[in-house]
Structure formats: structure tokens, C-alpha cells
Amino acid sequence: MKGKTKERVSYFFTHLFLIIVCLLTFIPIWWVLLTAFDKRVSLVSTEFLIYPRNPTVDNFIQVLSHPSFVTWLKNSFIFAAGTTIFSLTLATLSAYAYSRFDFPGKKAGLASYVIYMMLPTTAALVPQLLIVKYLGIKNSYLSLILIWSAANMAFAVWNLKGYFDTIPKSIEEAAIIDGASKFQVFTMIMLPLAKPALAITAIFIFTAPWTDYATSYLFLTDASKYTLAQGLFGWAADFKTVSWGVFCAGSIIMALPLTVLYLVFQKYIINGLTVGGVKG
């Protein structure tokens, strides 16, 4: 009996905690939604609304009809997808090597990734600016794809290596005996098995450039290469008083593709995050 009461109390507090956390995350989102769908002008209004008083989609129409909107969207997509494809390819190959092969400098290589992750990204900004300038690729897609890829490599390699480590070596050996070449083992066995880890790593990488503002603001001066975040903020800030309604509508439009991605890959994401630690 006693154990049961204890269980109930702990159940209650666990859930109370979870509800509070959910509310804390949800309120700002709700605020953004309200602002986007309401005719108000101020984001810092003192009155708290549960639902929009003057519902409208004007803000969205305004964003979508902006002459540069499609360009910004396209740019964001090129940056995010380019970074994802480029760094995921490199990370998968190197994670496999780190997981399966022994070579001199293996430990040092892995450790250097950790050290890299501990450095604040801003520390690299000046050298990166210089390198980009030196290579003569300023304002190109390539410049930011390289920078974002570098920033994501450490995480991607570690995450994928952790997953590859959980795949028993005997599965590969079985394939070798079945007649698979090293490359076939990689493409026909390891890659399909690593799908959950690949999916989550891809989404994480994709999110970084998609939601970035600071890096593109620093590196891009050519308006035709502006990302969605950069373009929207610059535009919203152009109004005499910042048009928060437009800004929030833009944010929602930006968040939509990510939300859809997360929902579609939800199953994988949970797998990809937990499976690394559990020996299959």
C-alpha cells in the first residue's frame, strides 16, 4: 500500500513538472502565433490574449507577397540542403572509418572534434572571414555551406560513429563471407542500418543553417543571397516601428518546413537519439 502511495506522489510530481515545462515552451510559441494572426502592432503588449481578438491572415499575405520572398526561401533551402548533403556525406564516411578501422591518430582525431565543439563558434569568425576572402568565394553559396558544414562535422561524426559502434561487427563479417566487397558492406548493410541515425543527423544539420541569422548577416552582403531569416528581419526592421505581426508570420512560415520534417521523422529521431547508448 505504502509503495503505491509513493508511486502516485512521484507520478504526480513528474507530470506536474512536465506540464510546467510544456507551458514554458508553449507560451512563447502561442504568443508568436497570436501576434501573427492578430492585427495588433506591438509584441510587448501588456494584455495577455488567449485567442486573437481581430483574427487576420494579412500578415502572412504580406510576407508571401514580398517580391524577394521566393529568392530568400530558395537561398535558405540551398544553404541548408547544401550543408546537409555535403557534411553528412563527409561525416558518414569518416564516422564509419572511426568506428571500424584502426589507424594512427584515430584517438587524436576524435578528441580534436570534442575540442572543436567546446570552442565558441564566434572565435572562428574572423579567420573564417579571412579564408573566405582569400579563396575569393565571398557572397557565394559555397562559402557558407563550407562554414556551416565545418560547424556541424563534430556533432555529426560523433553521433554517427556512436551509432555505427552499436552495429555488431559480425553482421559485417557475415556479409563479407557472403561475398560483399568493403564498399558493398558499407552501402548495402551499414547505411541502411544507420538510417535512423542518418535521419536525425540530417535534420540537426539542416536546422542549423535554416535558423541561423548571425553568420549569414556577417558573411553575406549581396542581397540576392540573403537567407529567409536575414531577409525577413531586415525587412521587418525597415518599417518605422518594427511590424511584429509580419515578423511573426515570417517566423511561422520559416518554422513550418522544420516542423513537418520533425513530425515525419519523429520515429527515427527518438530511435536515433536513444539507440546510440543501448547495445542491440
Binding site: 555488431p168 559480425s170 553482421i171 563479417e173 557475415a174 556479409a175 563479407i176 563471407i177 557472403d178 561475398g179 560483399a180 548493410i189 541502411p192 542500418l193 538510417k195 542491440g280
Partner: peptide
Amino acid sequence: APKDRDIAMVFQNYALYPH
């Protein structure tokens, strides 16, 4: 190479291809 040795192997943990 293993594949050309005319052998087959059964592993302790079965080592089936899960996918």
C-alpha cells in the same frame, strides 16, 4: 578472400541482417 574459400559461417549472435 573469404568469399572465394567455399566456406560458410554461422555466428554465435546469428549476425542476421536486421533490415
